[in-house]
């Protein structure tokens, strides 16, 4: 099931950032889009497709006008890539999906609580949770688990009583 820009905009609307979505570049730190897409391919179910447009739109909108947030995200991904290079001889985009999955578990992300200024596992967990939030509040993410109108997505008042 293909994730779309509409999905990303819906997810952005659910975090209060929709108005700035979709315009790339704001003169501050550039985003590690390839690595974030690689992460999303690991985090989202295998039935999902269209990760690049979704992730790029969502993360750009989410961090636009928030330079500290953008910097923290970029630094966390860089630190995770350093570990990936050390343990798996390559950055996230070059690793197999199974290796990315294992890397996240080996870093301790599975059991970490999200924390912006925490350990690498805690910082990565924060990034992971934000990408999961985007997916599971989007219409396509909702459809993949059984709802066309997940909480956080303003999907109207038809689906709850059986309409579309």
């Amino acid at each position: 099931m293909k994730l779309s820009r509409r999905d990303a905009l819906a997810a952005l609307a659910g975090v209060g950032s929709a108005s700035l979505a979709g315009c790339s570049g704001d003169g501050s730190t550039s985003l590690p889009v390839d690595s974030l897409v690689a992460l999303a391919e690991t985090l989202y179910p295998s039935a999902a497709a269209g990760h690049r447009e979704f992730v790029e739109t969502y993360v750009d909108g989410r961090t636009r006008g928030r330079p500290a947030e953008r910097e923290a995200l970029t630094e966390t991904v860089a630190d995770l890539n350093d570990v990936a290079r050390e343990w798996y001889d390559g950055r996230l985009p070059g690793l197999a999906r199974a290796d990315r999955d294992t890397l996240l578990r080996e870093v301790g992300v599975e059991t970490a609580a999200p924390r912006r200024d925490g350990t690498l596992a805690e910082r990565v967990r924060r990034v992971v949770d934000d990408l999961l939030y985007a997916f599971y509040t989007s219409p396509t993410g909702g459809e993949l688990v059984g709802t066309s109108n997940p909480p956080g997505y303003p999907g109207g008042t038809a689906s709850y009583h059986g309409g579309r």
Binding site: T42, Y44, L104, Y133, F135, V145
Partner: peptide
């Protein structure tokens, strides 16, 4: 909620989607 399960489970990928679907 789907997002509530997703952010409290700890897992990701197909494993998480299966758990969200089952819980929801």
């Amino acid at each position: 909620t789907p997002v509530g399960v997703a952010l409290s489970d700890g897992s990701w990928g197909d494993e998480l989607a299966d758990r969200v679907r089952e819980a929801y």
